[in-house]
């Protein structure tokens, strides 16, 4: 899996650029590079549904972020108290990485997943649902409640955006 390693390294470099660059528009574009890397890795990891969805979602996300940053007179935001802030952040990250190390040790080896439920789905999915795309069979038939919850969250987010952005009914000073 050499190409997967190369893609991950590319994504890490793009993420570092996105975090550290001063210009906000360049930062947003670097995040787009990270998203396209994720889409390509989904394709390498044999998940074509996810690759298509990630690609189009990434484009829409990029458009929304660019609309948020463009046409604004952006003042340069300084990161004050450089030493103290960086030290506290890095110490928190060290604690986090310590726990992550213990968690990673107990994971199954890469390439040999534990597939107890998935074996049943793979064996009987076609006979039970009739769908050739097993991912669609899982999200819409075996685990339809997940999709129902997703629809609820999306509806709430749309209502939230409209409530935050509304014009009528807002009291003007």
């Amino acid at each position: 899996m050499l190409e997967l390693h190369l893609l991950l390294l590319f994504m890490i470099v793009a993420a570092v650029v996105a975090v550290e660059i001063k210009d906000l528009l360049s930062s947003v574009i670097a995040v787009g590079a990270v998203g396209l890397g994720v889409s390509l890795s989904f394709l390498l990891l044999k998940a074509p549904d996810l690759a298509i969805t990630q690609l189009v979602v990434e484009i829409l996300c990029l458009i929304i972020l660019i609309r948020a940053t463009i046409n604004k007179d952006l003042p340069l935001v300084k990161d004050g108290r450089w030493f103290f802030n960086t030290l506290s952040t890095l110490s928190f990250l060290a604690v986090f990485l310590l726990f992550a190390y213990f968690a990673l040790k107990s994971l199954p080896v890469f390439g040999k997943p534990i597939m107890r439920i998935a074996e049943v789905y793979l064996k009987e999915g076609l006979a039970k649902t009739g769908a050739a795309n097993l991912v669609a069979a899982i999200i819409l038939d075996f685990r339809g409640y997940d999709t129902l919850g997703e629809a609820t969250v999306l509806f709430t987010a749309v209502i939230g955006v409209m409530a935050v952005m509304r014009k009528v009914g807002r009291i003007r000073k």
Binding site: L60, I63, I64, R67, A68, N71, T129, G130, A131, A132, A136, A137, L140, D141, G144, T147, A151, L154, F155, A157, V158, V161, M162, M165, K167
Partner: peptide, 30 residues
């Protein structure tokens, strides 16, 4: 595949129209 194409159409309407209205709302304020 029974209800799966119907569910796909329903989710497509929901996701597409929802994201379009989010974008329009953000654009009008901007």
């Amino acid at each position: 595949a029974g209800i799966i194409p119907l569910c796909n159409i329903a989710i497509c309407l929901k996701v597409g129209a929802g994201l379009f209205s989010i974008f329009v709302t953000l654009l009008i304020l901007n």
